[in-house]
Amino acid sequence: MKLSCLRCGESASVSCVEGDACLVRRLQALGVHPGRPVNVVRRAAFNGPLHLRVGSTEFFLRSREADAISVVHAS
């Protein structure tokens, strides 16, 4: 499922990152790799960006960019 389906506070495991090459590289550089756990910390008001935590790194990205990331619930 898409990362944007997660509720705030939920964690899941990255299953794949696909889309614009520039975006994918950037996400990989921030540590978003398949198998890595990702945590949706919060979402900003007015359908704003998502605040994510991956490892020791926190960043935000817009919904459009977040759609490049697919996740599965960690079992």
């Binding site: 520039c22 975006l23 950037r26 921030l30 935000f60 990205l61």
Partner: peptide
Amino acid sequence: SMEPVILELPP
């Protein structure tokens, strides 16, 4: 703006 909007939130 061609670059994706991804901004780090440092401690």
